[in-house]
Amino acid sequence: MSSENLDVSSELKSDSSFADRTKSVSIAEKTSVIAVEATSTGVEGRSHAAETSTDPLAQPNDELNKCVVVVNKESGTVCDLWDDHFEAELLERLKANGWEPGLKLVKGEEIEETVVAAKSRKIGGLIAGGGDGTTNSIARLMLGSDIPMGILPFGTLNLAARDLGSPLEPLDAVASLYPGRTREIDALELGDRLCLCMAILGVYPELLNKSEEFHGRNWWRKFTKLGSDFFKAFLSSPKMELSLGMDGTKAERVKSRMLIVVPGHFQDDFGIIPKRESLEGGKCTLLVSKHSSAWSLFRMIGNFLLGRSAQDPDLEVKSAATLSINALRRKKVLLAIDGELAKFKVPLKLDLKKRALLVLDPKASEE
């Protein structure tokens, strides 16, 4: 798909400075990119490991039990959890599952180069460590690859990890990943961006753009603050005039304060954080809000929490594999894609790529 739809000056909300949050964490003394083998010999042992590298990036190999773990040290709670003991335990759990792991601890700006280098080798897995933004960025680079991608959740919501059924504690999550246990899932392309979980247009991304950054594992704090602000903003914001084209059919005009596109569809289950099912169904679910009163908004929230959003009379539900969105009297629109903000030129085309992303399946460890 052409990248002309994507504004070159895409505005992404980045995490707070890693340096500001790591004064008391020993990892701050490490280099930006580290390839290590878990040992009990401390710093000297790490130097020896580097000289006799077992990092899959350092030497060619044909063994598919080798994996590379790429951790964004600027994501979520990495700086709160990471120390020598945590690192050694993580690598030991991978080894216990049959992996020969190599670790890359990098800044956000170094992720693409690191992933591209890893893909050039014959490895059996690339595990992405970070929040939903990091997972999304690495998934875009892994799309169409025959190297499966695993998820190591260090974010606030960890949407993709939840959808796959992964444990949300990083050490438990990594213990659920085994060589060769994979599945293929759908991914939604928007220009040269990728959406794994949901893309939201309207009140929510506009509110998120103005709100204070929050990163941490206590996601309920973020939801409590956003929930109060969202209710006020929703009722006071004007409706967008949109033109929606689905699967090549004639465009339909709608008025809405919020539109959500989901690869697959949400489970009909209780919960504050939505969880998807049917990750390889080849269709997107389009949720168009028609709510206009305080009562209808309360009802929407209640139905959402109870897993009955499809039964909401003011929520129009559609299904399509390709979608075109045009916002009348606007040149650009702001979307929240898996929690990260980006601006796009309109009309914006969305294309679902069926089973285009190969992932390590954490639920396979239960079988």
Rank of each mutant, 00 (worst) to 15 (best):
S10C: 11
E11C: 10
E11K: 12
K13S: 13
D15Y: 15
S16L: 15
T31P: 01
V43T: 12
G45K: 06
T52H: 14
P56L: 01
V71E: 02
N72T: 08
S75V: 10
D83P: 06
E89L: 06
L91T: 06
W99C: 12
G102N: 11
L103W: 09
L105E: 12
R121V: 08
I123H: 07
G133R: 12
I138Q: 05
A139H: 09
R140I: 00
L141E: 01
M142N: 03
M142Y: 07
L143H: 00
L143D: 02
G144C: 07
P148S: 08
M149Y: 10
T156M: 03
A160P: 00
L164N: 06
P167N: 06
P170F: 05
P170K: 02
L171C: 05
R183V: 10
E184H: 15
D186P: 00
L188G: 01
E189Q: 14
G191S: 10
R193Y: 14
R193M: 08
C195Y: 02
M198L: 08
A199I: 08
I200H: 05
P205L: 07
E206C: 05
G216P: 09
R217T: 14
R217D: 10
G227L: 02
F234T: 07
S237I: 03
E241A: 09
D247I: 02
R253P: 00
K255Y: 02
P263A: 06
D269V: 07
F270I: 09
G271W: 12
P274Q: 04
P274G: 04
S289Y: 14
A294C: 05
A294N: 00
L297M: 11
Q311L: 10
L315N: 06
V317T: 15
V317S: 05
V317C: 11
V333C: 12
L341M: 13
L350C: 13
D361T: 09
